[in-house]
Structure formats: structure tokens, C-alpha cells
Simulated scan of single mutants.
Amino acid sequence: MQQAFVVKPSDETVSSTTMQDDDHLLIAAAANTNYWLDAYVIYSGGDIRIHFTGPPSSTLQWNAMALNTSSTSSNPFDTIHIKSYGYATDLASGGWGSSHDMGLSIRGVLRGGPSAGTLLLRWALPSGESQAVTVRAGSTIRLTKLPS
């Protein structure tokens, strides 16, 4: 596989702070193979918290352009932050209500280990958030094989 691409076919809503596997944003990764990760998560409602899990003994380094969840401004776009993360390290991004779709632009490198497996997006509400969040149809995840 040189490239694999998944498009979320339907909306999915969560109203819990317990991390759950996305029903659609998961993608197979071969053993001993390195990939470029490119994803775009469309969401609406409350704030969202995300992280990835992946194949055994693999590593993932990723970052995302996300909105600060503690913004008190009427314009949440004035508090954009970018950080670098690994597996099971949560990123929280602010929401702007159910009538506004927001987007997380995610980039990273997956370094495959000796076992094949699945790269999977997990998400939930951040602690203290009470408004449900919906990950929208059309969200995407893509892996592109990197040269050895």
C-alpha cells in the first residue's frame, strides 16, 4: 500500500468524558513501515479531546492546529495552539456550539514496529465539558508510505 484513505460516512455524537474509539476513523498499517499521517477532523458542539492508538511497538509523533479550550474571547480563533504529541497523549480543542463546524488539521509520522496493526482515532469530551460533541461525516484520515 502506497496510500490509504478513509472518509467518515456519517456523524457520530458523544456526551461522555470516557475516551471511545471512532467508528470509522481507523486505518491499517503494515509492519516495519513508516507513514506520513494527514487527517482532518470536523466537529461541532462542545470541546473535544482526542488521541491516537496504533500498532504494537510502533511510535507516532503528531501535531494539530487546535483552538484553546479556555478562550474567553467571543472569537475562539484568536487562541490557536500547536503542540507535538505521541500515542495516548490527549489534545483538547475548543468548540463553538452545535451550529458551527470546527476543524482539526492533524499531521504526523507513524514509525511502524515489527507487527502490523491499526491506527485509530479516539475521542471524548474534556473533563468538565457538558455539551455533547459530534464528529462529522467527511472527516478524513490518510496514511502515505514513506521511503525506507
Rank of each mutant, 00 (worst) to 15 (best):
V133A: 04
I106M: 07
R107L: 12
L121S: 05
T118H: 06
I106Y: 04
L104S: 01
G117H: 05
G128R: 06
T118Q: 13
S105M: 10
G128L: 06
L110R: 08
L110C: 10
L121D: 01
G103C: 05
D101N: 15
G103P: 00
L121Y: 04
D101H: 12
S115W: 11
R107G: 15
E129S: 00
V133H: 01
R122T: 12
G117W: 04
S99W: 06
P126Q: 04
S99E: 08
T134S: 07
S99H: 04
V133Y: 02
S127T: 13
S99A: 14
D101K: 15
G112T: 02
L125H: 01
G128M: 04
V109M: 14
V133F: 04
S105Y: 13
W123K: 01
R122D: 10
H100P: 01
H100M: 08
P114E: 07
S130C: 03
D101G: 14
W123T: 11
W123Q: 12
G117S: 09
L104Q: 06
V133M: 00
Q131T: 12
T134C: 07
A116R: 03
E129Y: 03
M102Y: 03
W123L: 09
P114Y: 05
V109R: 15
S115I: 08
T118N: 11
V109C: 12
P114C: 07
A124C: 14
L125E: 06
S99L: 14
S98E: 08
R107S: 14
G112V: 04
Q131C: 00
P126C: 05
P114K: 03
S115R: 12
L119F: 09
A116F: 03
I106N: 00
G128E: 05
T134A: 03
D101T: 14
R111Y: 05
R111E: 14
M102T: 09
T134K: 02
P126S: 13
I106L: 13
L121P: 03
L125Y: 00
M102N: 14
L104R: 04
S115Q: 15
A116I: 05
S105I: 11
P114A: 14
T118P: 04
S98Y: 02
S115L: 14
S130D: 00
A124E: 06
S98R: 06
